[in-house]
Nucleic acid binder design. Structure first.
Lengths: 159, 159
DNA sequence: CAGATTTACCTGTAAGATACAGCTATCTGT
DNA sequence: ACAGATAGCTGTATCTTACAGGTAAATCTG
């Protein structure tokens, strides 16, 4: 199963090569899965909208810059995405009382509901996909992914 | 740390919710990382080009349709990506001797070299990011990601 | 084997995500 | 109070991708 013949013989490098392979694959499969799930019947939320609503739900209302920084996106990107979300009634913009330049973005009940529906659908999907995994393996996967994300995030934030 | 207050109390659902969260995050961070690494100095390979070259390297020369099916992409998408790769001298098209409609896509030495360079850079990057992980944890991560991808792929392929 | 169907690939068109550059309004430190 | 930083927006451009429709080749069917 190893396809790392050109990475060298260092076992550490082999493992890192495998991780690289699997993450690249996961990105592709995740995209395909998202496309297959979301777009088909629901036409509910595009990728960015979901992430923004998730973040607003978790971290509370905040302005565009904070969102952009947190999501590693350009401010202009978030501006447009927020505009679309507002058009669809999924978030609300209010002037920031503490800063005349800023606007605070909050999810609307409709937005939270839409987000929760997508989340539930995806969670259900992972339940199907991982149906034959042990609870331990699922826990370990969740833990390791969490640590991986923390490490990636720390690295991105440092640069 | 749990943010699954609205997913219910079933511990299984909690874990699945965490997995969903972490995968969504990883997709975003992975994108950001790719953008930060690849585009900056090298301007080497965009995402699709890398995936196509990886696949050609692993699975051998094949035609556009096979690539599209394997990568879960529309044929027209692969056609264009292959055209760009050909323009840049990274793949070669030859008429399929067994099928007058088809063209076989093969990586060129330049393409393989470019791909290997990106791969090495990413592997190095993961080495930095996971510098303080134990070898065991890295192995486990690689294994679980592999299994996750197999499960996702099986599911995508079934539909 | 002739006509119908399927397949492989390409092109036109369109949409979404994202970045960068440049603009205005506002804020902050000295 | 002014210079510089910051927040957000708009214009423009690129990349990725899909769907619809077209042509040519292969395959099936009676």
């Amino acid at each position: 199963m190893r396809d790392d013949h050109r990475t060298g013989t260092d076992p550490d490098a082999v493992t890192l090569g495998r991780i690289e392979t699997e993450i690249a694959l996961l990105m592709r499969l995740g995209e395909a899965t998202r496309r297959a799930t979301g777009t088909a019947e629901h036409r509910v939320l595009d990728r960015a909208a979901y992430v923004i609503l998730r973040h607003l739900d978790k971290a509370g209302p905040q302005n565009v810059s904070a969102l952009a920084a947190r999501l590693n996106l350009d401010g202009s990107t978030v501006t447009r995405q927020v505009s679309a979300l507002q058009r669809d009634g999924l978030i609300a913009r209010t002037p920031d009382p503490a800063d005349g330049r800023g606007t605070v973005i909050s999810p609307t009940p409709a937005g939270l509901q839409r987000m929760a529906a997508v989340r539930a659908a995806r969670t259900r999907l992972y339940g199907e996909i991982l149906a034959d995994w042990t609870g331990d393996d699922r826990d370990t996967l969740a833990d390791l992914l969490h640590r991986l994300n923390e490490a990636l995030d720390a690295r991105n934030r440092r640069r």
